[in-house]
Design a binder for these strands. Structure first.
Lengths: 156, 156
DNA sequence: TGATTTTGTAGGAGCTGCTTACAAAACTGA
DNA sequence: TCAGTTTTGTAAGCAGCTCCTACAAAATCA
C-alpha cells in the first residue's frame, strides 16, 4: 500500500484529482493564487526595474503627496508602521526620497521625492501601466467595475 | 515650503487626498490589499492554531491525496519546488506528515498525514470554515459565484 | 548503453510583515 | 505651568514566503 495510486505524471496534472479538489472551493485560496500570479507577472516582466510593486506604491504615494509622513504612508497602504519604515529606508538609501523635518510639528518628518525619485517614478508608472493593461485585459469594462467593487468590500 | 500642507491628523485620514488618490485605480493594488486583509484576519483569529493558511493548504492537499509527491504539491498550489519543500519539511518536523518511498518510482517519495496530522487537519478545517464564512459573508451567493469566476481567470 | 529528464536535497538571498522597547516632541487638562 | 498621555520616529529581532543555483540519485528514452 502507499502506492496504489497512479504515479503522478504528465497526465496527472490535468486529470487525477482535478487540481486541488475540495480545496478549490476556498475563496481565500483563490485570492492567494491570484495575488501570487499578479506578483509573479510583475516580477517577470518588470524585475529589471529593480523595484517591487510595494516599493513603487510608496514612491507613487509620496510623489502624489509631498510632505507626507511615515505614519500616513503605513495607513494608506494598509501596512504596519515598522513595515513602512523598512520600505522608506530602502528608498532613502537609494536616493529616491528626501526628508525635511516639519516645522509645525517637530515630531513629524516630511518626505518628498528627489529628482532621481521623480524620474524613476515616471518610469515605474509606465511599467505599472503595462502591467495593469495585462491584468485588466482579462476583463470587460463591466466586469472590471464589478471586480473592483467586490474586492473593495473586504477591506473597506 | 515643504510644510504648506495641512498637518496630517485625524481629519486627513478621511479627507485629504481621499486615501491614496490615483493609486486607487490600480487593480493590482486592490488585489494586494485584499490579500493582506484576508491574511491578517486569519492570523488574528486563528493564529493560536500555530499554522498559516499555506501550511494548512499543504496539509489539506496531502490529506486528500495520500501518496502525493513534492512536485505535485508545488504544482497544485502554484509554488516553486523549493518553496514547497520548505513547507513540507516544516510539517514533517512537527510530526504531521510521513514519507514512504514509492516502490514503482524510486525517485519519488509518497507523503501521507500521520495520525497527529489528520487530527490537526480536522481542527484546521473547521478554522478555515469559520474564516471562509467571514470572507464569503461579504457577498451574496450570486456575487460569490461571479467573484470566483473573475478571480480564476487570472491564473487559469 | 549512454544521454536526458525527473525528483529530491541543500544553501543562500531578498522582501514583507509583525512584535517589542525606546526616545523625543507635542498635546491635554487640571 | 506642569505632569501625564499620545503621537512619531527609531532600532533590533524573528518568522514566513518566495525564488535561484547547484548537486546527486534514479528513471526514462533513444
Amino acid at each position: 500500500m502507499g502506492d496504489n495510486r497512479k504515479r503522478a505524471g504528465k497526465d496527472d496534472k490535468a486529470s487525477g484529482t482535478a487540481g486541488i479538489g475540495e480545496l478549490d472551493t476556498i475563496l481565500g485560496l483563490h485570492i492567494r493564487r491570484v495575488h501570487g500570479a499578479v506578483q509573479r507577472h510583475f516580477a517577470e516582466h518588470f524585475g529589471e526595474l529593480g523595484f517591487t510593486q510595494k516599493q513603487i506604491s510608496v514612491l507613487w504615494l509620496v510623489g502624489s503627496n509631498p510632505g507626507i509622513a511615515q505614519t500616513d504612508i503605513a495607513q494608506r497602504l494598509d501596512m504596519d508602521r515598522a513595515t513602512a519604515m523598512t520600505l522608506v529606508h530602502g528608498l532613502e538609501k537609494r536616493g529616491l526620497m528626501q526628508r525635511t523635518p516639519s516645522e509645525s510639528d517637530r515630531r513629524r518628518i516630511a518626505f518628498q521625492l528627489t529628482g532621481k525619485g521623480e524620474e524613476l517614478l515616471a518610469r515605474a508608472k509606465s511599467a505599472i501601466a503595462e502591467h495593469e493593461a495585462w491584468l485588466t485585459g482579462h476583463y470587460t469594462p463591466g466586469e472590471l467595475k464589478t471586480l473592483r467593487k467586490l474586492l473593495a468590500r473586504i477591506y473597506r
